[in-house]
Design a protein around this nucleic acid. Structure first.
Length: 651
RNA sequence: GCCGACGUAGCUCAGGGGUAGAGCGUUUCCUUGGUAAGGAAGAGGUCACGGGUUCAAUUCCCGUCGUUGGCUCCA
């Protein structure tokens, strides 16, 4: 007999060889019907795996993440079989489940697969699914496994198997299909009722751009047709929140082929929005003891050789600008920090004067690979809300925590609650990617982890994600389509102070090396605005939105009164405009709703007589008639409820 | 940079070997309106660009540029 412990702590006794499915059936018929995967003592097992020792069993249904994973992993087998049947001779490589669905990387040889083929693939996959084939795992010796794939001429699988231990190799069979597989399947293919191929993309074998490029076929599947329909509708909704679409509709920014790819042009409304964001941060920064500085857009190549950026990114930068007569070399600045280091060097500092906090909305230029450019989130010219803090070692901890406070204030004020905090540290396997002493790295990494822990941040540690000069704490936010982007960043740097020979005079009358913190709570204005748009669906917070209200005169007769109201709104710092076109009120309202103005103010005879305004809330309908004062209060109240003032922890 | 897709009016898009269409917007006129589209007429396009095939290319083929989904990269 063996003892099976369930998640609720209940212990059941069974004869050795009982399967998770049988345990589920023992608990309830309903669970037995729905169980699609299980884990035993922390390892994923099949629902038909015989359990032969005491242990903890967790049963999963479609509603569990692990259940979905098994479902999608199994679906990738079905996809693979469909591809093999439709395109004989394809070489399969790997096909994991991902966050939303699954993919399979396939070498199609000469054949190319495109959207036109999706229908056929889906049809074939569903046909296979309907066959209700059981997934069956079997152990294979390394020699047999290698022989199997060598015969097929599949070098990819051979390479995978060569890296596995003999005795640790399993194949999974279903229908006529066999794949090298570690396990974790649903009972049979029949559970897959809906199947969709989403897109195809190139992907390098093992993520290495020097190795062959495969075709990655992305798909998603569901146990119910309705789930697929809902998922596709969700994707459609997400597209409506795409910042590229909203930016165009709201007239915030544009791109011009003539100016160049990845170089955003900010339209008047976008520029005004940006300015408000900048002022918002400037105000908080002032309280937090920052001083604004300004530096030029180019710098001598030597500056970046000194900083180490040239050695690391010289080839991947816009190439040097040459002066016509002296042939001096300048670089478009890719970073503000070297400039700020030179600002620090402008005069000697005593420890009594530190920390120095230099802030600048600095525009930088980076040569990003053309395939990487994406709307405002990945561009070649962008403005960082940058600052560099020069402090003593003793001050580092407190300064870092102050910056965390400021970053959280910024994210909180703009409604970003679902960010992910990520501590990026060195890749232990590639130490040569980083500059600076291992000692300093240890200190810096520890300082960040301590500060994040003390601030109660829920963070994950990502090895290999550090900048080449130091570790960092990043705030990651997802876009409409679920892709993660880095917004705010805080980085500890022992390196640049050394390279620029920065010093301060200590209490011991000796020169000491300051520590530097790089930080940008927004990250870049471009990316921040992009994510803010996606996050809000274009319904920006009232304090930020370009126009808070649009005045809609009922007819041309009322234009004059509208102008008068506009004037008194402007006197109360409310941003508004008049729609004086000769259109019906209905049409003006419809268009104002679509243009996402937070408030619509209808003025006609009634209002003019009473000296009031009729207010309509975007998406919320008629609020009735108000005095201008009452409306101004309403706006102020809403702004105050979302926009808190920054409380600095400075003494 | 790599693989795939896409590029038609200001915007959203249809079409297709015989040099172009819709809706919205814009312009003019009529209408002076009360909480999500009042009516009419007009203007607007080297069908991204450059080659090739063809009697004929916006349409088919190749290349370039741009956009896009991924991959790699991201100071």
């Amino acid at each position: 007999m063996i003892e099976i412990t369930l998640p609720d702590g209940k212990v059941l006794e069974y004869a050795s060889g009982i399967t998770p499915y049988e345990v589920a059936r023992d608990i309830s018929e309903g669970l037995a019907r729905n169980v699609i995967s299980a884990s035993f003592n922390g390892n994923t097992v099949e629902t038909v795996t015989p359990l032969k020792e005491d242990g903890a069993l967790v049963l999963y249904t479609w509603n569990d993440e692990a259940g979905k994973k098994a479902f999608w992993h199994s679906s990738s087998h079905v996809l693979a079989q469909a591809l093999e049947e439709l395109y004989p001779g394809v070489k399969l490589t790997i096909g994991p489940a991902i966050e939303n669905g699954f993919y399979y990387d396939v070498d199609f040889g000469e054949h190319t697969v495109s959207e036109k083929d999706f229908d056929a693939i889906e049809k074939k996959a569903l046909e296979i699914a309907r066959g209700k084939h059981d997934f069956k795992m079997r152990e294979v010796s390394k020699a047999d496994a290698l022989a199997h794939y060598k015969e097929e001429g599949n070098d990819f699988k051979v390479e995978l198997i060569e890296n596995l231990q003999d005795g640790d190799i399993t194949f999974c069979d279903h229908s006529t299909f066999t794949d090298l597989c570690r396990g974790g399947h649903i009972p049979n293919t029949g559970i897959i009722k809906a199947f969709k191929v989403l897109n195809v993309a190139g992907a390098y074998w093992r993520g290495d751009e020097n190795r062959p490029q495969l075709t990655r076929v992305y798909g998603i599947s569901f146990p119910k047709q309705k789930d697929l329909k809902e998922y596709l509708e969700l994707l459609e909704e997400a597209k409506k929140r795409d910042h590229r679409k909203l930016g165009k509709e709201l007239e915030l920014f544009t791109f011009s082929q003539r100016v160049g790819q990845g170089l955003p042009l900010w339209l008047p409304k976008g520029a005004a929005l940006r300015e408000r964001l900048e002022n918002f941060l400037k105000q908080a920064q002032k309280k937090a003891g920052y001083e604004m500085v300004v530096s030029p857009h180019i710098g001598q190549k030597e500056l970046y050789v000194t900083s180490g950026h040239y050695a690391k990114y010289g080839e991947d930068s816009f190439q040097p600008i040459h002066t016509p007569k002296e042939d001096e070399e300048f670089l478009l600045k890719p970073m503000n920090c070297p400039h700020h280091c030179e600002i620090y060097r402008a005069r000697p500092f005593s420890y009594r004067e530190l920390p120095k906090r230099y802030a600048e909305f600095g525009t930088v230029y980076r040569y990003e690979q053309s395939g990487e450019l994406h709307g405002l989130t990945r561009v070649r010219g962008f403005t960082q809300d940058d600052a560099h803090i020069f402090c003593t070692n003793d001050q580092l901890d407190a300064e870092f925590k102050n910056v965390i406070d400021l970053s959280l204030y910024v994210l909180g004020s703009l409604g970003f609650e679902n960010f992910r905090a990520q501590v990026s540290v060195r890749d232990p396997e590639n130490p040569e990617k980083y500059i600076g002493s291992s000692d300093n790295w240890d200190k810096a990494e520890q300082a960040i982890i301590n500060a994040a822990t003390e601030k109660g941040l829920d963070f994950v540690i990502e090895p290999g994600e550090a900048a080449f000069y130091g570790p960092k704490l990043d705030f990651m936010v997802r876009d409409a389509l679920g892709r993660q982007w880095q917004l705010g960043t805080i980085q500890v740097d022992y390196n640049l102070p050394e390279r620029f020979d920065l010093t301060y005079k200590g209490s011991d009358n000796e020169l000491h090396r300051p520590v530097m913190i790089h930080r940008a709570p927004f990250g870049s204005m471009e990316r921040f605005v992009a994510l803010l748009l996606e996050h809000t669906g274009g319904n920006l917070p009232l304090w930020l939105v370009p126009e808070q209200a649009i005045l809609l005169p009922v007819s041309e007769k009322h234009e004059k009164y509208a102008e008068k109201v506009l004037n008194s709104l402007e006197n109360r710092e409310i941003r508004a405009l008049v729609d004086a076109r000769s259109e019906t009120v209905g049409k003006k309202i419809r268009e104002a709703e679509l243009a996402k103005y937070p408030f619509m103010i209808i003025v006609g005879d009634q209002e003019a007589e009473e000296g009031k305004i009729s207010v309509r809330r975007h998406g919320g309908g008629d609020l009735g008639s108000l005095t201008v004062e009452a409306f101004a209060d309403l706006i102020q109240k809403e702004i105050n409820s979302t926009l808190k003032t920054f409380e600095s922890k400075l003494n």
